[in-house]
Design a protein around this nucleic acid. Structure first.
Lengths: 221, 221
DNA sequence: AATCAGTAAACTGTCAACAGTTTACTGTAG
DNA sequence: CTACAGTAAACTGTTGACAGTTTACTGATT
């Protein structure tokens, strides 16, 4: 019994979304092959739109393909992760700078609220909520920055690595660093906001580096 | 008589390259529609691979599509150009910083050589050569930076805007700014290299802003 | 002259079929 | 036991056909 994809949008778009979802929720693991024939049978559509979706996924860095061998969920190497961390730091800093230049009291208040929610989530041992609210925090900064291109580039980098569980959480440090960032934004100190935004992500990178030096491994399930 | 695409690589990849080339060399203009039926007849392949190529081009930001209406070469708005300028400045600065941290005397010498060649090209009134060597200069910085992810993101941004002739050339300033950048890289002064790299691109942005304020137009043929 | 309705052609999105390639398995030889 | 060759099934890349949508054109009405 095929799980028919609900029609309405172009099938190639729906296929993209479904495959993306499968990658982001771990159903498809890095290194794992996507069988377009089986996917099309399972979801009740022809292979054409599946192939189109795969081309898009490939350009977005979520999968890798070789002629004759279909597509495989992309495995991001430690070197790539290292590079992506630096770029995320750069972009986060940039967006914090812009947010400091552009945002009003309402924006800073919302950031504070999210950071408080993260604190509450940790105190309640709810790491799912903590993680989700952390994403919202960074999403809000990107919104306040009002540079849609930067936002897109940033999101793409985040998505490229999402299938890999490489983040080393340290809520205490994170919440504190968020508060420093908020302070700089509130004070409309763009240079300081940029610096603190970069440092925040680079701190995460250092934690990761420390962990791989202990584990000899770039990922964590 | 179809201009058959030479086979060997996947047809979808060849179609991507052909369409990309047509966009970058101005044969396909921003706002212009790509007719997949006509393209397939002209180049002697079926529509399937053309469609796959279009999905890839779309994800790369070179074209835009709407259901039922095929793909149109993307028109980049002045706001987008503004944003992209800022991101290019950010990435250029970052790569200059890395280059200053990583490169040896050979690298700086090559940059000097390219800057001299640009100077010669201008003196000989050869703007084609000047433009080409300028691209090589920036390409070399990206290479010396050794962050492939940054390089890719940068190239993508450059390509997204390439169909638009928005750059306002000022060779005298450019060559001087390149020399400042080279100096900082040679001195392995990463912070200064980053600052000078950013300023160099932001100077180009200012020239463009000045021009659109005079023309009320974001592009230039 | 401008607008609307109808019609046909062209185009786009999808499907199923075909041919070549890759994978998986089995049997044989060293 | 390992390596190689052969075979068949499954899969990938491409093609052409079909159906629905969009575009372009014509004629009628205001």
């Amino acid at each position: 019994m095929a799980e028919a994809i609900k029609r309405g949008e172009k099938l190639s778009v729906l296929a993209y979304k479904k495959i993306e979802e499968m990658i982001l929720n771990g159903e498809l693991k890095p290194g794992e092959r996507l069988n377009e024939h089986r996917f099309s049978v399972k979801y009740g559509l022809s292979r054409g739109p599946v192939r189109e979706a795969c081309r898009a996924l490939e350009r977005d860095g979520l999968v890798v393909s070789s002629p004759g061998r279909g597509v495989v969920v992309r495995q991001v190497t430690p070197k790539e992760l290292y590079e992506i961390y630096d770029l995320r730091a750069l972009l986060t800093g940039f967006m914090c700078q812009l947010a400091a230049q552009k945002c009003n009291e309402g924006g800073a208040a919302k950031l504070k609220k999210l950071n408080e929610e993260m604190k509450s989530a940790i105190e309640a041992n709810n790491s799912e909520e903590y993680y989700k609210t952390n994403l919202e925090f960074h999403e809000l900064i990107a919104k306040l920055a009002e540079n849609e291109t930067a936002h897109k580039v940033y999101n793409r980098l985040v998505k490229e690595t999402h299938a890999h569980r490489f983040a080393v959480l340290d809520p205490e440090i994170t919440i504190k660093q968020h508060a420093y960032i908020i302070e700089a934004i509130e004070n409309q100190d763009a240079d300081e906001a940029r610096k603190r935004g970069e440092e925040h992500v680079l701190a995460g990178k250092e934690r990761w580096l420390k962990r791989i030096n202990e584990d000899g491994d770039g990922t964590h399930s």
